[in-house]
């Protein structure tokens, strides 16, 4: 009996060596630094920052601490064209499924955004804080924090954090869900064709109608609000109730 088991076991140990090269342990942080096996999958850090916190001025989003499943979903959505972006689509298309899984995991393991618990905020009607914390229910717009979590820190795998993202990035996404309406020609100007939404990947249409029904001014104000929350060095204290 024992004689049989030993060769069997050593055979099992040899197995990984027989697997094709591409499936060999892909290292997530390697991809961040050096890109994927395909050179078109450029190193993520060039745009998403060495610490994964993005580049605010360019509108490159923070990836550090986003949920693993959310990152993988976005890469799949870029690949499938449900989320259109001239920069990110070719990169997502060049990543292998193994690379996607590894890099999503590696970014999820970086620190999540920390927001200090503040005093109960009493937002002013008409402000960005108002949209974030009270919504605009007369247009069926729930407060953003109802889905994106207290202080916008995100909820589970589905609702990404808004805290930690730049105003430009948040604004870009809201506009991507809106597209633009056609403008009719006048005597002096030419007609402008409608641009369909370039982001169409929200589950059950939960996000799109919100972006469509916000005004331009509200989009700007609410984006500034979340960007303005900044980041605290103190960890997000999960034992404290967050007040609405």
């Amino acid at each position: 009996m024992r004689k049989l088991i030993t060769p069997l076991l050593s055979g099992l140990l040899l197995l990984p060596a027989l697997l094709p090269l591409s499936a060999q342990a892909v290292d997530g942080s390697d991809i961040m630094q050096k890109g994927g096996a395909n050179p078109a999958a450029m190193p993520c850090i060039t745009c998403h920052g060495t610490d994964g916190k993005g580049m605010a001025a360019a509108g490159f989003p923070r990836l550090a601490g986003l949920p693993e499943a959310y990152i993988a979903k976005q890469l799949a959505d870029f690949k499938a064209g449900r989320r259109e972006n001239a920069v990110m689509q070719p990169i997502a298309q060049s990543l292998t499924p193994e690379e996607v899984a590894a890099v999503a995991k590696a970014y999820a393991e970086l620190p999540k955004v920390n927001i200090k618990p503040g005093p109960v905020e009493r937002p002013q009607p008409g402000s960005g804080a108002w949209i974030a914390l009270r919504g605009a229910w007369e247009r069926n717009i729930p407060e953003c924090t109802l889905c994106h979590g207290p202080a916008g820190v995100g909820v589970g795998d589905t609702f990404p954090p808004l805290a930690g993202q730049s105003a430009l990035y948040i604004e870009n996404q809201l506009k991507a869900w809106r597209g633009t309406k056609a403008v009719a020609a006048t005597r002096k100007t030419k007609a402008v064709a409608a641009v369909p939404p370039s982001r169409r990947n929200d589950p059950n249409g939960l996000m799109a109608h919100i972006a469509v029904d916000l005004s331009e001014a509200e989009i700007k104000a609410v984006s500034d609000y979340f960007a303005g929350l900044g980041e605290s060095k103190e960890a997000f204290d999960e034992s404290q109730h967050r007040l609405r």
């Binding site: 979590g149 207290p150 820190v153 995100g154 999960e238 034992s239 404290q240 967050r242």
Partner: peptide, 10 residues
């Protein structure tokens, strides 16, 4: 439902 820390969200 779903919580963030002790705070119930959903």
């Amino acid at each position: 439902g779903k919580k963030v820390g002790v705070t119930s969200v959903f």
